[in-house]
Design a protein around this nucleic acid. Structure first.
Lengths: 209, 209
DNA sequence: TAGATTGTTAATCGATTAACAATC
DNA sequence: TAGATTGTTAATCGATTAACAATC
């Protein structure tokens, strides 16, 4: 039976999806839980447990059909139309992430970018307009974006977060070092803390872990 | 007594370090484990357990001295001179990460960047030269960088990884979707899988989690 | 001394792994 | 049927939380 997936399980789904994509590209038709486990660096048990949170995608005695399994995971990860998305902070990082959103992923449609710097307003970023922060309320009222990518410094993030939440944004891809999750527990935040990531690497490199 | 830290503990260190930095900036002198727990969204028990992996940083009955505690964590995360670092792939993302390395973090000193595109060679990225990929072996032989930031696509990453490891690179900050960890278990890799992160957000947003 | 809060040991909880019956 | 491999239940392991003695 299906037990609803825990966070560790959910976090592994994209990786399965990715690996299965590679296999499909290589023309591999069928895979067993133990083969997948080897690719993922985990155990066959875990692979089967993970999939069985969502339903039986395999055939006993046979294994999993690569294409079918990937499609099922795709339906879980990206079940609907791409989500209308805006980006706050059209600097260096914002530029790179806009590019990433357009080229290297699915599920999100970037519709507009916002920046405080007057000289950026009117320019475009990956074919979407860069608007003034003042225009944010009007834009949201008209277009109802669902997700915001936060590419501004921590101080600015703290200010803009409440604003965006009031305007109906429910999901955040957060690159700032401000942690929403504490103050707004009902909002969905995926944090990418680059500084923390580097600090972890520093610990590992310096302590020979 | 000290038990050597598990990965979850290590991953929390940068966050403690960050929060303590904010407190220090606000002029806060002393903090208790329960106050820190509230900031971190965890329990006082965990905070004390975490610190006691490294030694007693607090005073019974009093709490922790913010400045002192932060210094101790700093010594753990960044115990030595900044690590000489190179960047592979001077595109959009590479540019943003070079900036990040220079401005927003410590522990790493970017020394050179490398790119396959001939037109980029000779330019600079955050004051460091962009060199041709051909020059990689010579550069490493002369300067012995320790860490490489991988900002190239997966296919290229797979090729360059073996090369870099042969040249003596031990640590990687990896933005490509190629997973070193499986094939080279003795190498230190900190992965930033932006695609996986977004897919997780997509799951959350679409499944109302 | 009384109150507060740590350091540390013990109990709980959840996630991973192992085992095995079901079935292709 | 025999071999393979899943789905699922049970056992293990590790991380988190609770409890409490030590001590400032």
């Amino acid at each position: 039976m299906q037990s609803k997936p825990s966070m560790p399980v959910i976090k592994r789904l994209p990786r399965y999806y990715r690996d299965l994509g590679e296999m499909e590209a290589e023309g591999i038709v069928k895979v067993s839980s133990s083969e997948l486990a080897r690719m993922m660096g985990t155990t066959a048990s875990q692979v089967r447990q993970d999939f069985n949170c969502f339903g039986g995608f395999g055939q006993q005695g046979i294994g999993y059909n690569v294409k079918l399994l990937r499609e099922e995971l795709g339906k879980l990860l990206f079940p609907r139309e791409p989500v209308p998305t805006i980006l706050i902070g059209a600097g260096n990082l914002g530029h790179a992430m806009a590019n990433f959103l357009r080229k290297d992923t699915q599920g999100f449609a970037l519709r507009a970018a916002f920046d405080v710097k007057p000289e950026m307003v009117g320019l475009t970023l990956c074919d979407v307009p860069i608007l003034a922060m003042d225009a944010l309320a009007d834009y949201c009222a008209e277009h109802h974006p669902k997700v915001a990518v936060i590419c501004v410094p921590r101080e600015a993030a703290q200010q803009v977060a409440q604003h965006l939440i009031d305007l109906g944004i429910r999901g955040f891809w957060n690159f700032s070092h401000y942690d929403f999750s504490i103050e707004y527990p009902d909002v969905l935040v995926e944090n990418v803390h680059l500084g923390d990531s580097l600090a972890t690497l520093s610990y590992a490199v310096n302590n020979d872990l």
